[in-house]
């Protein structure tokens, strides 16, 4: 993955002037779409993501229905203009995978037994991408679901860690992701710190992995605080 001649550290700081354990600036807003049951808009560094949640509602097609619980469906989609080279529109291998892991990360906290024979639909649209969109997507989707009033045990917060030039760092941006050595996205339910998503791309030693995991976990908890504020802000008097 590494290319020669690309420097990822300037004067001991990262390309955008961050420390190794510093997140990019994050901005969240809840209830941005009028016609959706719940929605959220998220800016995470250069990432811009909008998430919408519908339901619980009737399941179509009918054969997907479960007699004793609600199902959760997630669609992750990148806009053609979200990346420097135009992305061919429509579902591809990558977005299928992200939809699936996001669905599993979110489903684990939904109280599905309360609404049998129904579906909770979540749509994640990436308007602008700059590494870490799956984490940002999960974070936005959790907000949209809470806004829609879906009964949930907990929120889901997500953050990634990685390795750049042999050093473990949290929340990698585009250049670091492309020329770095490893990437470790993590999603947790913050109350009990249970892991609901953990993927790894590249190589970590065991020690590095533990360091990265702890860094990502700390990042998730920081993200959780911002999520809380965003939800409370909507109903501020």
């Amino acid at each position: 993955m590494k290319k020669d001649g690309v420097k990822l550290f300037v004067d001991g700081k990262r390309l955008d002037g961050r420390e190794l354990d510093e997140l990019r600036p994050i901005k969240m807003e809840v209830g941005v779409l009028k016609r959706a049951d719940g929605s959220a808009y998220l800016e995470w560094g250069e990432n811009k993501i909008i998430a919408a949640c519908y339901g619980p509602r009737e399941v179509h097609p009918r054969h997907m229905e479960e007699a004793d619980k609600a199902i959760v469906r997630v669609r992750y989609n990148m806009a053609p203009f979200s990346v420097p080279d135009r992305k061919r529109p429509g579902p591809d291998r990558r977005s299928h995978e992200i939809s699936k892991v996001t669905k599993e990360a979110l489903e684990s906290v939904v109280l599905t037994h309360l609404y049998p024979k129904t579906v909770v639909d979540v749509f994640i649209e990436v308007l602008q991408a700059n590494a870490g969109t799956r984490c940002a997507g999960i974070t936005a989707a959790a907000l949209a679901m809470a806004d829609a009033g879906i009964p949930m045990r907990d929120l889901i917060s997500s953050c990634a860690a990685g390795k750049i030039e042999g050093k473990v760092a949290v929340d990698m941006m585009g250049a670091e992701d492309n020329f770095g050595d490893a990437d470790l996205p993590l999603a947790i339910s913050p109350q009990k710190k249970e892991v609901t998503l953990l993927q790894m791309d590249g190589n970590f030693t065991r020690k590095e992995f533990e360091e990265a995991f702890n860094m990502a976990m700390k990042g998730c908890l920081d993200v959780y605080e911002i999520q809380k504020q965003a939800l409370l802000k909507k109903y501020e008097v």
Binding site: G38, R57, A146, D147, A148, G149
Partner: peptide, 20 residues
Amino acid sequence: QLGLLDEKENFVRVIPLSGG
């Protein structure tokens, strides 16, 4: 759920603000 907390001496519930 996201909602308003209704807490009394021996009873507690959350009044939802949205939902089906």
